[in-house]
Amino acid sequence: MSVIATEGRLRLAALLFAVLLSGGLAGCAYSGRPALAAPNSLTDAEVRGIVAQWQQRLDRHLADEGVGDPAVLADLPALRSPQALRPGRIVFSATDIGATVAERDGYDVSGLLLGRLQGADRTYVFIVGTIDRDDFRPTALVDLRLASLTLRDGAPVWRIGDASVAALARYGERAEVGATLRFPGDRDRFRLVDCLPGICAEESRSGARWTLPVDAPVNQATARR
């Protein structure tokens, strides 16, 4: 038992040192409430730049976790949480894009996978929402648009759709009053719908609709493979 007691003392000494050190670090890292961020006013180019960062993080995730295999999206950890109200939905999020302080400001971008298109190419379609953060809370859903990921010879090829101010406004009218802003919302019902030419999606509660033309410009992936 004396050996154990010695081990205990050594652990205790290491513990006391570690606590003092890390307690000090923690005290430095988390102090004070920062000032407010500027209100949002994004151009289409700025939104595309933000969405491109989400796209790059998703590409990197596919490369790192699945060697490029999109099936890893089915294993996203959020789907396993017992807390999830809609664990059957696949959502990939990229947070703190453009943030000067993590969690305080910047943008959170989330893409809900709507499904895979039938055809020779394997094309996966997302509805991508961009949320503005200010003073440590989500303040506005500033953009919603479609994005498609096609794998050609193992390489990801992206198409990003245009914004629709009308669809965003229509969708926003169904938001739950008083609830913390989220995308996708707990009650949303997005689905792919038939339309030509291109890809269309609808949120059935609001009737809001988005289109991704077949000739939308291609964004080549930049993630390492």
């Binding site: 950890p77 947070t95 989500p138």
Partner: peptide, 12 residues
Amino acid sequence: LPLGRDFADLGP
């Protein structure tokens, strides 16, 4: 708590 964010389930 982190508003508008979801926690990872660290159970595993």
